[in-house]
Write a protein that binds this DNA or RNA. Sequence first.
DNA 1: AATGATTGCAACCGCAACAAG
DNA 2: GCTTGTTGCGGTTGCAATCAT
Length: 322
Amino acid sequence: MGRAPCCDKTSVKRGPWSPEEDELLRSYVQNHGTGGNWIALPHKAGLNRCGKSCRLRWLNYLRPDIKHGGYTEQEDRIICSLYNSIGSRWSIIASKLPGRTDNDVKNYWNTKLKKKAIAMHSQQQQEYYIHHQQQQHGSGGRARRGAGTPRSQCASMQPSPASASSAATAASPGDAACSFGPMYSSPSTLPQATAVLARYDGAATARLPPPPPQQQQQASSLAEFSHTPPQQAAAAAAATINTWAGGLAIDDMFLPELLGVGDFPPGDIFGGGLAPLLQDRGASSLQELAACYFPSAQAAEMWAAAEHVKPPPPAGLCHSLT
DNA sequence: AATGATTGCAACCGCAACAAG
DNA sequence: GCTTGTTGCGGTTGCAATCAT
């Protein structure tokens, strides 16, 4: 037995709103507020509409501070970044974009930004393959474990754990390779993490100075675990740090993907070795990132428990982004 | 100019969470 | 603790506008 419908759908008007209806709703809400009851509002306002419909119309279209279209590059980055880390939680994403509604952000993602992001990722991946092949031929050495493992086509656009269930219904059977494992359930997966590091280093390595001794030492540990040559590992780490500090486009993509390959317990190169080094280079930005990328307090505590940074504020998501 | 395909967006649907009685 | 009503959310649909042939 299902729940009774909120209104009689046969007796209320549906479909597009007329300017007269918009004006009735707007003036009523501006004069009286919603009264905390959308179901009763249409009757009071003299509208032959379902309360849910009124609410949606007000929130998505009539509210005075709504922006439509004209998304900026920064907004694109925020959407991509948050989608990558928390999935299709549009209300949370929209709350970080003043004037944007969840419906608007969702439509924008589905119709435009997703294609743009996929195209960008394909290009990045192509560049990485070229970069990697050049490295292999240049060194003449054996292939790196992990770093040489190509990730699936949809790697950085995979649905996050938060959206895994909905993605499962949407994806075709052939898309099975595009699903994330649980973000924190696996043990340390250093080779994969190194692969992520290495993939992102391509763009930034060229402009970096040689890594300082401290980084070289950290890199040796990384190399030991991941079979990555120390110089490359250090360069990758430095690239990561500098990228975060510099606020380049890839910073939004890097951390969620890195975190997506597994957790990094204390004693691990990421959990206990790299973290202090990263903190030296900008603890406050790390805290911000932690606050941004951990949607739940539990996940944030896990991050903090590994002594990476102080726990982010409980409110969680991306205060600093907007 | 006609027609079919694609795109963009507003609106709807159903479910889950929450609140009130 | 249970039932009922309301709100919030994300997925999906419908349709007008635009584009391609």
